[in-house]
Amino acid sequence: MSRLSISAALTPRLETVGMDALMVRLFDAIDEAHMPWILAADSALRAHLGDALVDLVPSYTTLLVHYDIARLDQAEAKRRIHTALEGLAPASTQTGREHRIPVWYDESVGPELATIAERLGVDQDEIIRRHTARDYCAFALGFTPGYAFMGMIEEALATPRLKTPRQKVAAGSVGIAERQTAIYSMRSPGGWNILGRTAVKLFDRGREEISLFRPGDRVRFEAVSRDVFIEQGGDTTPLEER
């Protein structure tokens, strides 16, 4: 599967999506093995487009290139993109940065910890063990600033989104939906199944790197106690009281 996808990466498809935007389509399906290719394409496109690049939005299988229409017409933009992607190959250094994210897994701040444990017929500690058992890949950032769509969680944990999204989900809430996991970067509406909360700020304007995550980063969750969570500056207000 991923071998096939990699050969597809050698012939990226370029699609018109607007006056000043082209979609670079590398793959068709979600696969962690694709991320090094996306990251390699990201660097190559940034280097070749230089100042003519307005925004570059990598996602699971694509990169949206928004170029400066005053400098480039579409034909020239296409030429530069093709040149950038010629002989594309992921470098071993392009594996993304690693993050360890401490999470207080508890029913009060993660109500679906209980419902998922019940559905699987296991105790809550088993859900925590499974959620913390592997590294996740940040496929794309979106929804709110600094929010990363990560995966893949193990198949058995996969859970559909809530039928009725919550009006307010606290910042730092750690959730799962289907085979993906994420952390709410700010208080917002949301339909993911919430398992716990982290005190780590994903989007912090006081920090030099405002967004903690970038596409392609690797993330490992680790369970911490309530006391450690509080020590780290965590807010213990139960989710449903927000």
Binding site: A21, S59, L63, L64, G142
Partner: peptide
Amino acid sequence: MVSEGIPLGAVQVPPDGQPIILLNDRQTIG
């Protein structure tokens, strides 16, 4: 579809067939 970057003015068509034109404050991927 797998979520991907959305350009300004994107005319997206959800399953009900009624287009939504995405403007400046749109989400970045969809």
